[in-house]
């Protein structure tokens, strides 16, 4: 099953209210610097393409770029890192968001119960901690709210290390939005919204991957 590029994954999900950062898709270093100037520094630069799924492992993500020179240099180096196997590539320029809490959300097709939606505690320990809740698609807002309640790490959702409490309604929007995407777009067989960073209490989907049939 093909995995869409990050940019295409986000486009596919954005129609359902998943909150993505304002980001730009460009093809040259000059365009990247111009986009960064519009978005404001610092920015993140990623190399994207239809066959590029594991950007971090390949070093295709550059964080905290503070000025135009840094953006142009990173862009040139990322474009040079593309291999022929990557096919057509592009650059994604995004604002550098920071938040101390990372969540994960997604869609998964269960062999027994069909399409499910998930919410969990994210970050590098996500799979080890496995503090997650599932529901069957479609979900109501009440279902989505109860998923938040089901997570063991409730302290993450209150005020946390100087950051405000998580906007639960906004998080419910993400879960209900993923569910709606699965219903309206049956070609979607799986999705990861990971990480879902909490920025000033608001969940923002910094990365997304969609698998289609």
């Amino acid at each position: 099953m093909p995995t869409l590029s990050e940019a295409d994954s986000k486009t596919r999900l954005a129609a359902y209210g998943i909150p993505f950062p304002d980001e730009r898709r460009v093809t040259t270093a000059t365009e990247a610097a111009a986009a960064a100037a519009t978005l404001g520094y610092p920015v993140v630069l990623k190399l994207g393409g239809d066959t590029i799924a594991h950007k971090t492992e390949r070093g295709l993500v550059r964080l905290r770029l503070g000025d135009a020179a840094a953006v142009e240099e990173a862009a040139t180096s990322l474009l040079a890192a593309a291999t022929p196997a990557d096919g057509a590539v592009h650059l994604l320029v995004a604002p550098m968001l920071s938040g101390q809490r990372e969540l994960i959300a997604g869609l998964h097709h269960d062999t027994q119960f069909g399409m499910t939606v998930m919410l969990g505690v994210g970050g590098i320990l996500a799979e080890a901690v496995a503090d997650v809740a599932f529901r069957l698609v479609p979900v109501s807002r009440g279902d989505a709210a109860s998923m938040i309640d089901d997570l063991a790490t409730q302290k993450l959702f209150g005020p946390f290390r100087g950051e405000p409490a998580v906007d639960r309604e906004a998080l419910v929007d993400v879960i209900v939005g993923l569910s709606a995407a699965a219903v309206a777009d049956p070609a979607i067989v799986a999705a990861d919204v990971n990480p879902l960073i909490v920025v000033d209490g608001q969940p923002v989907a910094v990365d997304a991957l969609v698998e289609v049939a």
Partner: peptide, 22 residues
């Protein structure tokens, strides 16, 4: 084994538990 993180977190029991809650 699943390509997605969501899939790798989706054990039978977690999905069953969510189904019951729902």
């Amino acid at each position: 084994a699943a390509a997605s993180h969501t899939g790798s977190l989706a054990s039978d029991d977690r999905v069953f538990d969510g189904m019951c809650r729902q």
